[in-house]
Write a protein that binds this DNA or RNA. Structure first.
Length: 277
DNA sequence: CTATAAACCTGCTGGC
DNA sequence: TGCCAGCAGGTTTATA
């Protein structure tokens, strides 16, 4: 469920409650996550250790522990990290941590696409090696995007969803970014002009920032660390609006399938020919 | 290289 | 009311 804004909102909610505290206990449920370290490994590297930092890369949360171990958490589609709920908070709590000061943290994930992997000090954080650049990084420029897209025929939608290039953009925000930039989702990535990349990048940053400020987007499952929904869903221009009128021009919002995922767009605000180089 | 499709799971909705 | 198809915020792997 969570894309970059939702993960960032969760991080900001967790950090003040968790950073500086020691983990006291780690409980692991019987159902397996898609990728999860063993109960023994989790206990070994977390128990008794203080959380030094809580960072984010793309859609990953990075828990830096006293002693140098690292816990990586990815929320998949339906993962939640909830503060202060009981161990038996529904049937899908797969990890339950207690920390100093009576603080508890539950990892709940209905579909179990999430990951919770612990790495010993010095061990390479393999999942992060695939993660692309942060959208807010100064190293992401129109020139760099154009270079990465050079000669590529893949649709812009697929390019934006490829977390190995720019990290953190998922299906909702990819649709919203392309609408805001006025680009048709099937435009070959390599056909965008430098000016078009500048627009796409500006809109990416504007929308992600706004979504973070609004506490993320709740369509179905997303809740922040306090169990609250986001607010950005009321600002969505195209996502999930097939058959409804475009909020800008009134045209019918269309849906198409790209890379096995629904893409929503306005055929009038996102014409095919604009922005070609 | 490119692009689907399938795989991993559960739950909800809409049509009949 | 029941059943079934289709869909859902993600990522990886296989296949053509």
């Amino acid at each position: 469920m969570p894309e970059l804004p939702e993960v960032e909102v969760i991080r900001r909610g967790l950090a003040p409650r968790l950073v500086g505290r020691r983990f006291l206990t780690v409980e692991v449920g019987d159902k397996r996550l898609r990728q999860g370290s063993s109960p023994g490994q989790l206990a070994r590297w977390l128990t008794g250790r203080r959380l030094m930092e809580l960072n984010r890369r793309g859609k990953y949360l990075i828990f830096r522990l006293e002693g140098g171990a690292t816990l990586l958490i990815h929320l998949g589609m339906t993962g939640r990290l909830l503060l202060g709920v009981p161990r038996n908070h529904g049937p899908h709590v797969h990890l339950f941590f207690t920390l100093e000061g009576g603080v508890t943290l539950a990892f709940q994930d209905v579909r179990r696409f999430g990951q919770a992997l612990v790495f010993a000090p010095g061990e390479p954080l393999i999942p992060l090696e695939q993660v692309g650049r942060e959208p807010f990084s100064r190293r992401v420029t129109p020139e760099w995007l154009a270079e990465r897209a050079q000669g590529r025929t893949r649709p812009l939608k697929n390019f934006l969803l490829d977390g190995r290039v720019v990290a953190g953009i998922g299906n909702i925000y990819a649709c919203e970014i392309m609408f805001a930039a006025g680009v048709h989702p099937a435009t070959p990535a390599g056909a965008l002009s430098l000016e078009a990349w500048q627009t796409v990048l500006n809109e990416t940053r504007r929308i992600l920032k706004r979504a973070i400020r609004q506490g993320g987007t709740t369509v179905n499952d997303y809740l922040n660390s306090r169990g609250e929904t986001g607010l950005f869903q009321v600002e969505l221009m195209v996502y999930g609006r097939e058959g409804e009128p475009c909020r800008r021009c009134g045209s019918n919002i269309k849906r198409l399938v790209q890379a096995g995922r629904s893409t929503f767009f306005c055929p009038r605000c996102q014409p095919k020919k604009r922005h070609f180089s």
